[in-house]
Design a protein around this nucleic acid. Structure first.
Length: 941
RNA sequence: GGGGCGGUGGCGAAACUGGCAGACGCGGCGGACUUAAAAUCCGCUUGGGUAACCCCCAGUGUGGGUUCGAGUCCCACCCGCCCUACCA
């Protein structure tokens, strides 16, 4: 047997070093961030707020993919401390929500207990990676001290309304004052408008009853109750936001069926902010793909609303269209099956067919529709509308290709210029009228003449949906013939407006945010319901409204789609459910907030986590947030639309109300990639533990049996998860950090390879052996000056690493450090003037090893705030340069020239080169191109 | 269907505003040290023409183009991943 003591007594011992320095950092509170008001705070230093998307503390613990972004931000935070910044780098837990509750239900323990256990375990794992968080600022969304302010923000939303003119939120009290003063009146539609702009039927404040007044006010609040069609999921016993429902019409969590049904729910008026959420994307430094996803989600489109008269009825059918210029081609109308006017337009002998279709459509979930592809179904109602420009009666159909959830739930169908309408019209034999002439290029591509196009329109599979020139679009008052599409839109919209038949309109895909859940494990609403339906908020002094203690907190799930929602808080003790104020008994709101609530503002709380008078102190908020918000926010793409849009919305409200100083919360956003992993299935298709699979040649086997390789996410189900704990045990967390960062660019997804980890380990061991003779334990440090070539290499390395740190290119920074370190290996000693900067540059990446080496260099204390090495440009200048010699673009040799040689001299030297001469033999010299510092290219023929 | 990102050795990947393709790491091959092994150190490692050197040819998904010069720019196409999806 070997004798490890003698051999390894002085070798790199990551476990000992890492334990030692993690204890040191804790004990000395090395990473505590000082801000305004803290003793010792230096306001002259620039600030840097480096933020991770905080995790949901799941019970299964972390795998090596989870900390990828955390390691990246940690490196940035450490680098910024060394470059003289005040750094705010906090961590916390997004601990409310469905999964926590389900986990708790399954394990029969109160969600708080299981959640706190999970937090503890996750934090142990995070601390072991050596992340330099200021743990004093740790928050969890489930802490009453935290959700007190989540509730407080909800109160602000409830007490605010959106002023369309100024495009900002303002207190409801101001709105009431304007109404009382007569500056505003209630409109006929139930809205609010300036007195001089209000249309017919507007009423002054003084003429309204108290109930009417309340209705008007409630209609303006940013948080409001509304009867809306929601995604009701009986299997989970709760309603879900659109974003929590899959394309297949099931719950994202649990995969239960989801049904559409109307329920009275809390809503947040995010649509009021649609334009600002869209416009302000221009001002932030985010990946273009994320911005695009948000733009798509907001889905702004410009068009017009048009009112169609219904024959034999006083009702009008209102539609939204982006192509009002095609109005002359509208040959029929389509209502969504759920449209409220379906009954009114259906004639008696069509009623049976229409009812059958509606029932079928209601049962047909999204998955069935998906399977049916583009096959369009529908049924004629027997009713007719009147095309307002042609005066022609056009049939009204019901079809499920029109969605109640967008626009008005009704369309004017223009089969000549909309692919869907065209498909439907051909299937149903409805007339198709072309009213836009395609341009010549479109026709030429399809070998069509204008006449052939117009004649073939009824049979053409492909519909012309582009811009062109109007035809067959004229009546006695207005003509679009010959007009280009944009101009035609303007003309017809103006005409419709003049006749009172339509208006220009902007439409959004974005819906208001459904904000209530029938859950126990979430923030209670700070809302009380009065006996007469009146709603009031809980006084700020009474916050937080804490979750009541309960034995049975599980939701009442059901297989019955018609089962009524019964929130768990309905079973809370009566002394919680009911509150008496001035002799009146109020009932608490029994719903809770969705998981997104707590993550909408946590980045603000980190700034001032223990403040019990405000959600954040204004001076501290200004210091850390102004001018551009969080300086670096790192997380996964999966939050591209939900979390990031909701947080921006809340932030803008807080900005309007004067609680924060920037219009946007996150100035720079960066998405880390995913670490994926190979997984292996046996002949039965069952996953086998990936770490037991052996590879030979191109084939893989497990326990002697051949297995199939797959590639996917790391996780329990694929039996391919690798935990950071096992990596830390085997190699140390510095190695884990270096390996993960060296794998490739931070924003790329890449496959985990445990086999490759040894490369990072070898690098750190080699660094160690450059400092320490691992046989004797003697220091190799010396005070001899470094030779010039190594000094040059050092300063080139400083330059490369510094630039890479700024650009989050840690993979190439590590490569540069490896090159420098490898150049030191052949030396007997290690000159101090090389050792110090090497240690400092290593510090963000492998902080424990760097601290240990720093101590061995004779420094006391931590290097966390030691100045980052400066690159001396004098050492970047070379005396001579090596240029590539090309003949006809191919490298034929190299040339060493003085750095200051001029182009003429270089050209002469190049032409004199023997290899060049050989390749030029028999050719005529045409041109010589000299690229300074790079190459010489000789063109000949 | 729409939008976005990507395709470079056996593998993960480098390559600044067009300028020596493959840095760095893994794996592989050879050597040194060792009784031996591990560890470590040194060398080689895109393919082909040679077993090796020199040298030559080809080469960044495919086919064209611009340029003295293209992984990088332009056009067309193929493949993969992600998002979105009857949004009027």
């Amino acid at each position: 047997m070997h004798q490890p003591d003698d051999d390894t007594a002085h070798s790199y011992d990551p476990q000992a070093i890492e334990a030692k320095w993690q204890a040191y950092w804790d004990e000395h509170r090395t990473f505590r961030s000082l801000g305004p008001g803290d003793p010792g705070f230096d306001a002259t230093k620039p600030k840097c707020y480096v933020l991770d998307m905080f995790p949901y503390p799941s019970g299964v613990g972390l795998h090596v993919g989870h900390p990828l972004g955390y390691i990246g931000t940690d490196i940035v935070a450490r680098f910024k401390r060394m470059t003289g910044h005040n750094v705010l780098h906090p961590m916390g837990y997004d601990a409310f929500g469905l999964p926590a509750e389900q986990y708790a239900v399954e394990h029969g323990v109160h969600p708080r207990i299981t959640t706190e256990q999970n937090i503890e375990n996750m934090e142990r794992q995070l601390r072991r990676i050596g992340l330099s968080y200021d743990w004093d600022r740790r928050i969890a969304t489930i802490d009453p001290d935290y959700y007190r302010w989540t509730q407080w923000i909800f109160v602000q939303l409830f007490e605010s309304c959106f002023d369309a003119r100024s495009q900002t939120a303002r207190p409801v009290a101001e709105l009431v004052a304007d109404l009382e003063a007569g500056a505003l009146v209630a409109t006929a539609e139930g809205g609010v408008a300036p007195t001089d702009e209000a249309g017919a039927g507007a009423r002054g404040w003084s003429t309204l009853s108290p109930a009417e007044r309340r209705a008007v006010i409630d209609g303006q609040r940013l948080a409001f109750l509304d009867e809306v069609p929601v995604n009701w999921c009986p299997g989970l016993g709760t309603v879900l936001a659109n974003e929590e429902v899959t394309n297949e019409g099931r719950s994202e969590r649990g995969n239960f069926p989801v049904y559409r049904r109307p329920l009275r729910q809390w809503m947040l008026r995010i649509t009021a902010y649609a334009d600002r959420l869209l416009a302000d994307l221009e001002a932030v430094d985010w990946p273009e793909s994320i911005k695009q996803m948000q733009r798509n989600w907001i889905g702004r489109s410009e068009g017009a609303r048009v009112d169609f008269a219904i024959q034999g009825s006083d009702e009008t059918l209102r539609v939204f269209t982006t192509r009002p210029d095609t109005l002359f081609g509208a040959t029929y109308m389509v209502l969504a099956p759920e449209h409220p006017l379906v009954d009114a337009v259906t004639v008696a002998d069509r009623r049976g067919a229409v009812e059958a279709y509606r029932t079928a459509a209601a049962e047909r979930n999204e998955r069935d529709r998906q399977a049916d592809g583009k096959v369009k179904t529908g049924v004629f109602t027997g009713g007719f509308a009147v095309n307002p420009v042609t005066g022609q009666p056009i049939p009204i159909w019901v079809a499920d290709y029109v969605l109640m959830g967008y626009g008005t739930g009704a369309i004017m169908a223009v089969p000549g210029h909309d692919q869907r309408d065209g498909d439907f019209a051909r299937a149903m034999g409805l007339p198709i009228v072309p009213v836009v002439l395609p341009d010549a290029a479109w026709l030429a591509e399809r070998n069509l003449t204008e006449t052939a196009y117009l004649d073939g329109i009824a049979e053409a599979e492909e519909v012309f949906t582009g811009q062109g020139r109007g035809i067959r679009s004229a009546n006695a008052e207005v003509s679009l013939d010959g007009l280009a599409t944009p101009e035609a839109k303007r003309v017809i919209t103006a005409w419709l407006a003049e006749k009172g038949l339509g208006q220009p309109q902007v439409q959004y895909k974005l819906r208001d945010w459904l904000f209530s859940r029938q859950r126990y494990w979430g923030e209670p609403f700070p809302i009380l319901h009065g006996p007469d339906g009146e709603i009031r908020t809980v006084d700020a002094a009474q916050l937080p409204v804490e979750l009541p203690p309960m034995e049975n907190f599980s939701p009442e799930a059901s297989d019955d789609p018609d089962a009524a929602p019964r929130p768990p808080l309905g079973r809370a003790p009566a002394d919680w459910r009911e509150v008496e104020i001035d002799g009146v008994t109020w009932r608490r709101e029994l719903n809770t907030m969705p998981q997104w609530a707590g993550s909408c503002w946590y980045y603000l709380r980190y700034i001032d986590p223990h403040n019990d008078r405000a959600l954040v102190d204004p001076a501290k908020e200004r210091y850390w947030m102004a001018p551009g918000g969080v300086d670096l926010y790192v997380g996964g793409v999966e939050h591209a639309v939900l979390h990031l849009l909701y947080a921006r919305f809340w932030h803008k409200v807080l900005f309007d109300l004067g609680h924060v100083s920037t219009p946007e919360p996150f100035g720079r956003l960066y998405n880390q990639g995913y670490i994926q992993a190979y997984a292996f299935t046996d002949s039965r298709g069952v996953y086998v533990p990936a770490d037991e699979v052996e590879a030979q040649g191109g084939a893989y086997s497990h326990a002697g049996q051949p297995v199939q390789r797959e590639y996917g996410k790391m996780g329990k189900s694929l039996k391919n998860a690798v935990s950071p704990d096992e990596m830390a045990e085997q190699y140390g967390c510095d190695t884990l950090r270096v390996y993960e960062m060296a794998m490739g660019p931070l924003d790329a997804s890449k496959p985990w390879s445990t086999r490759d980890v040894v490369g990072a380990s070898r690098f750190l061991q080699r660094v160690w052996r450059n400092f320490v003779d691992d046989r004797t334990g003697a220091s190799r440090l010396s005070d001899t000056p470094a030779p010039e070539d190594l000094k040059r290499l050092l300063h080139r390395t400083i330059q490369r690493v510094t630039e890479d740190m700024e650009g989050l290119r840690f993979n190439t920074a590590i490569a540069a450090l490896i090159e420098l370190n490898n150049a030191l290996v052949p030396r007997e000693d290690l000159p101090r003037e090389l050792a110090e900067p090497l240690t400092l540059m290593l510090a963000p990446l492998a902080p424990h090893l760097a601290e240990e080496l720093w101590q061995r260099l004779g420094h006391s204390g931590s290097l966390a705030y030691a100045p980052w090495p400066a690159c001396d440009p004098a050492w970047l200048v070379e005396d001579t340069l090596e240029l590539a010699l090309q003949v006809m673009g191919k490298v034929r040799g190299h040339l060493i020239v003085p750095a200051d040689a001029d182009a003429e001299a270089i050209e002469a030297l190049a032409l004199a080169d023997a290899e060049v001469q050989r390749h030029l033999a028999g050719k005529t010299l045409r041109k010589v191109i000299v690229v300074p510092g790079r190459l010489v290219n000789i063109v000949a023929s």
